[in-house]
Amino acid sequence: YKIYPYDSLIVTNSISVKLPKDVDRTRLERHLSPEEFQEVFGMSIEEFDRLALWKRNDLKKKALLF
């Protein structure tokens, strides 16, 4: 996945969300650098992957990456 800054990946309720063209809309968190991922989620990507799907989705919603 290509890395993008968190600010360019957050999704708000506005209709005209302009995400970069090559971003996987269903896995926005994968486009964060490991350092920024840790900062946003408070855990590593590996720890995040071990969580239940509902928990990952809940965290993504709170981080505006859903």
Rank of each mutant, 00 (worst) to 15 (best):
S14I: 10
Y6T: 00
F66N: 06
I45E: 05
F66T: 07
T12E: 09
N57D: 12
E29I: 01
K2N: 13
R30D: 02
L64K: 14
I3R: 05
E36N: 06
R50P: 03
L64R: 14
L59A: 06
K61H: 07
M43W: 03
L64W: 09
V11L: 13
R56F: 02
E47I: 10
L19S: 06
A52H: 11
S44F: 08
S8C: 13
K62E: 09
T26S: 13
H31T: 01
E36P: 00
Y1K: 11
P20H: 06
E39H: 13
E47W: 07
L65R: 01
R56M: 06
S16Q: 12
P34N: 10
V11G: 07
N13E: 11
E39S: 13
K18Y: 06
T12Q: 09
R50M: 14
S14M: 12
D22H: 06
K55I: 13
D7W: 15
E35C: 08
L53S: 10
L28G: 01
W54H: 13
E29D: 03
E36D: 11
L51G: 02
S16N: 14
V11I: 14
D58F: 12
V40R: 05
I10D: 02
L51N: 04
R56V: 04
R30N: 04
L64S: 10
L59H: 04
E35I: 11
I3W: 06
N13M: 08
R27G: 05
M43I: 07
P5G: 05
V11N: 08
A52L: 08
P20K: 04
L65K: 01
K18Q: 14
P20L: 07
F48K: 00
S33A: 10
F66W: 14
K62F: 06
F48G: 00
I10C: 07
E46V: 13
L9R: 00
E39W: 14
D7K: 15
E46I: 13
I3G: 03
E47Q: 13
K62H: 09
D7Q: 15
L32D: 00
R25C: 12
S14K: 10
R25T: 10
P20M: 06
I15K: 15
R30K: 09
L65M: 05
R56K: 10
L53P: 10
L32V: 03
S8V: 14
K2C: 08
L9S: 00
L64P: 01
I3V: 13
L51M: 09
G42V: 06
S16D: 15
R30V: 05
E36W: 03
S8P: 00
T12M: 15
P20W: 04
W54G: 10
A52C: 12
T12I: 13
I10F: 04
S14D: 15
Y6Q: 01
I15A: 15
V17L: 07
E39R: 14
D7F: 14
